[in-house]
Amino acid sequence: MAEYRKVYGLGAEFDSAASLMSAAETVRDKKFTHWDVHTPFPVHGMDGAMGLGKSWLSAPVLIGGATGTLIAALLTFVPSWGIYPMIVNGKPFDWRVLPAFFPIFFELTILFAAFSTVFSLLIMNQLPKWYHPVFNWDQFKKATDDGFFMVIEARDPNFSESRTREFLESIGGKNVTLIHD
C-alpha cells in the first residue's frame, strides 16, 4: 500500500561547519524564511549567517523581573503596613523601614526573572517536543556526531522540490533527501 505522507522539506548534508556556514549565508540572502541548520555543537556566528537577529528573550525577562518586584512589594507592604502592623526591632512603620524589605525585592525579582527566562526559552525552542520529521531521515543520526545538516521546509514560499534540490546541491549540499512528515 502506497503511503501518502506530507512532504516536510528537503535536507542536505555538508562537509564541515565552515561550508554549512557559507551555505547558510547564501540561503539567508535568497530570502528563505522556513529553514534550519543542525550541527553536533554550537557554531559561533551561525546566528548572524542565518540572519536571526536579536532574540526577543529580554522582553519576557524584564516583565518577569518587574512582576517579581511588584509581588515582593505587595508581600511586604500590605502585611507590615496594612493588615498586620508590628514593631520589629524598634523600627518605624513608615517608608524608612524600606531597607529591611530590599532583600525580598531582590530575591523575588531574580526568581521571577529566572522563571520567565526558563519558560520563555522552552516556548521559543518549542520544547518539549516528542516528534520531529527530520528523524525520519536515517542520515540525520549523524547530527549528534559528525554531520552538518540544513533543512529547508516545504512551507517556505520559495520552496520547490526540483529547484530547491538543485539550489542545495549548487551550494555544496550532499545526499539531498526529501523528508516526509
Binding site: 526591632n89 524598634g90 531597607p99 529591611a100 530590599f102 532583600p103
Partner: peptide, 12 residues
C-alpha cells in the same frame, strides 16, 4: 554597599 548598610542599620 547595601549589604553593609543594612546589617549596620538593622543591628543598630
Amino acid at each position: 554597599g547595601f549589604s553593609q548598610y543594612m546589617l549596620i542599620w538593622y543591628a543598630n
